[in-house]
Amino acid sequence: MIYCCNDHVELALDVIVDEYETFPVLRKLKEEEKMSTACEYCRKEAEYMVEN
Rank of each mutant, 00 (worst) to 15 (best):
M1S: 12
I2D: 14
Y3F: 15
Y3W: 15
Y3S: 11
C4A: 11
C5Y: 06
C5K: 02
C5N: 03
N6V: 14
N6R: 14
N6S: 13
D7T: 04
H8C: 05
H8G: 00
H8Q: 03
E10P: 02
E10V: 05
E10C: 10
L11A: 13
L11W: 12
A12N: 03
L13A: 08
D14K: 15
V15C: 14
V15G: 13
V15E: 13
I16N: 00
I16H: 00
V17W: 11
V17D: 10
E19A: 04
Y20L: 08
E21H: 07
E21Q: 08
E21M: 06
T22C: 10
F23Y: 11
F23P: 05
P24G: 04
P24R: 03
P24F: 05
V25F: 07
V25D: 09
L26G: 04
R27C: 05
R27M: 02
K30Y: 07
K30N: 11
K30L: 03
E31K: 00
E31V: 00
E31A: 00
E31Y: 05
E32Y: 14
K34N: 10
K34G: 00
K34C: 04
M35V: 06
S36Y: 06
T37Q: 14
Y41V: 02
Y41N: 01
Y41Q: 00
Y41R: 00
Y41K: 05
C42H: 04
C42D: 09
C42M: 04
K44E: 09
A46L: 01
E47P: 03
E47R: 07
E47T: 09
Y48E: 04
Y48T: 11
M49H: 02
V50P: 06
V50A: 13
N52D: 15
N52G: 09
N52I: 00
N52K: 08
